[in-house]
Structure formats: structure tokens, C-alpha cells
Design a protein around this nucleic acid. Structure first.
Length: 181
DNA sequence: GATAAGATCATCT
DNA sequence: GATGATCTTATCA
């Protein structure tokens, strides 16, 4: 079997580890008969209540509730009045951590906002479990070399004090090259 | 090429 | 009432 849907075991681990492991995996989006699958090339880790850049640092609210739930669920929120961001919940139930999917290997999808617009992802897909039929992640056997992963600071979290400098944004080298060469 | 501002609203103070 | 895990467009050098 070439493609295998990721199980909850995959997400029930250290968030920074999951963020790196998601690089090279395939995000699959199903709309009716149409299926879009694309390699994930950029992620960010958001690590729980202590991480001031993470929404869950505000505590349990209606919006962050999903992150407190079981691993593998989608966490999708609306931001800046016009964009959605797609996350996957990590760690076991009760530990509010998640990985933000920032970019796919599709032209025009570089960035969380554009990505969701392209795949028509919105709040109706929030809080879906792993076995839903709309959006999930597959392992297609791609092996990513550790040296191909670039670690950088996260984007747009300058307000997060000491946490803003954490190298919790991960980018596949190849795409990084074409953008910044 | 680089920086600034505008769009636009759920969530929190 | 302020702000943001963003992107696009306008303005300046």
C-alpha cells in the first residue's frame, strides 16, 4: 500500500516532532468527487498553555476547545476577518497543542490563508476527527532527509515574548531554495 | 525592491 | 473597543 492515512498515534507525540514529520506527507482534500492531494512543505508547532504564541495559552475557550481534545482532529479558525488557518491537533486529550499547516507543494498555496482559500477550507471543517471524509493526511512513503528541513522562527508572533524566537517553523529545503535563492 | 496600510470579523478585555 | 498564527494593493526610493 503506497499511501496510508496517518493514525492518531502519529499525532499523539511531541508537537515539534510531529511538525517536522508532517513535512513530505500529503494533505488530502475531498470535495464531492474531486480530490486534491499535495505535499506539505511548511509547518509550525504551537505548544500548549505555556507557549504564549499558542491560542491555548489563553486557556480553555470555545475557540481553543478543539486543541484540548484528542490528537489528529482538525483545528480551523478564522483570522484577520478574511482568512482561515488549518491545524492538526497533537498530543493526547487534555494537552492543547497543534501543528499549523502553512504551505503545500501547489503553486499559489504558499501561506496559511491562501492554502485554505485554494482548498476551500473553512470553519465547517473545524473539529473533524481523523476518520472524516473531507480532509486528512497521508504518508506516501516519501523520506525526508533531516538536512533538508530548515528551522526558522515562527511568523507573526512578535507579541509572544521569549517564545517568539523558538525555531518551531519548519520548511522543506527545496521550496525554501526556490523562494529565497 | 522595500515598506505601509487596508480589508474585515471572531474572540477576548 | 482592541487585536491578530494573513495576504493584497498602494506608495515610496
Amino acid at each position: 500500500m503506497l499511501s496510508m492515512r496517518l493514525s492518531s498515534d502519529f499525532f499523539n507525540r511531541n508537537t515539534v516532532q510531529v511538525a517536522q514529520d508532517l513535512l513530505g506527507k500529503y494533505l488530502v482534500r475531498k470535495q464531492g468527487n474531486k480530490i486534491i492531494a499535495a505535499r506539505i512543505i511548511e509547518t509550525e508547532a504551537y505548544c500548549g498553555i505555556k507557549d504564549l504564541a499558542c491560542h491555548a495559552s489563553k486557556g480553555l475557550t470555545p475557540r481553543t476547545r478543539v486543541m484540548f481534545g484528542p490528537p489528529g482532529h482538525t483545528y480551523i479558525y478564522f483570522i484577520y476577518g478574511m482568512y482561515h488557518c488549518l491545524n492538526f491537533v497533537t498530543q493526547k486529550e487534555g494537552i492543547p497543542e497543534a501543528v499549523l499547516v502553512r504551505a503545500l507543494d501547489i503553486p499559489g498555496s504558499e501561506g496559511p490563508g491562501k492554502l485554505c482559500r485554494l482548498l476551500q477550507i473553512d470553519k465547517t471543517l473545524n473539529d473533524l476527527s481523523l476518520d472524516n471524509n473531507f480532509v486528512w493526511v497521508e504518508d506516501r512513503g516519501d523520506r525526508i532527509k533531516k538536512s533538508a528541513i530548515v528551522k526558522t522562527k515562527r511568523i507573526g508572533v512578535d507579541y509572544a515574548g521569549p517564545w517568539k524566537d523558538k525555531l518551531w517553523r519548519f520548511v522543506l529545503q527545496s521550496s525554501y531554495d526556490t523562494e529565497l535563492a
